[in-house]
Simulated assay, not measured.
Amino acid sequence: MKHLTIVLLAVMLSGCGATYKYSVDAATNTMPGSVRQKCDPVPKDLKHGATMGDQTKAYDNLVGLYGECAERDAAKADWIASQGQ
Rank of each mutant, 00 (worst) to 15 (best):
M1W: 12
K2W: 13
H3E: 06
T5Q: 06
I6L: 15
I6C: 08
I6D: 09
V7E: 07
V7H: 04
L8C: 12
L8R: 07
L8H: 01
L8F: 10
L9V: 11
A10N: 06
M12I: 04
L13E: 01
L13K: 03
L13F: 12
L13C: 10
G15V: 06
G15N: 11
G15K: 03
C16W: 05
C16V: 02
G17F: 11
G17C: 08
T19R: 13
Y20I: 14
Y20F: 12
Y20E: 13
K21D: 14
K21I: 15
S23D: 03
V24E: 11
V24L: 12
D25F: 05
D25T: 14
D25Q: 11
D25P: 08
A27R: 10
T28S: 13
T28M: 04
N29R: 06
N29M: 06
T30D: 14
M31Y: 01
M31T: 10
M31L: 12
P32G: 05
G33T: 10
G33I: 13
S34Q: 13
S34L: 10
S34N: 09
R36P: 00
R36W: 04
R36A: 12
K38E: 11
C39A: 03
C39F: 03
C39N: 06
D40F: 08
P43R: 04
P43E: 03
P43I: 05
D45T: 11
K47T: 09
H48L: 15
G49Q: 04
G49A: 04
A50F: 05
T51K: 07
T51H: 00
M52C: 11
D54R: 06
Q55T: 06
K57D: 06
K57W: 00
A58L: 03
Y59V: 11
N61E: 07
L62P: 04
L62S: 08
V63A: 10
V63R: 09
V63P: 03
G64P: 00
L65D: 01
L65T: 02
L65I: 14
L65E: 08
Y66M: 15
Y66Q: 07
G67F: 01
G67L: 06
E68W: 05
E68S: 09
E68Q: 15
E71Q: 14
E71N: 09
D73A: 10
D73V: 02
A74E: 08
A75M: 15
K76G: 02
K76D: 01
D78A: 15
W79D: 02
I80W: 05
A81V: 02
G84M: 04
G84Q: 08
Q85K: 12
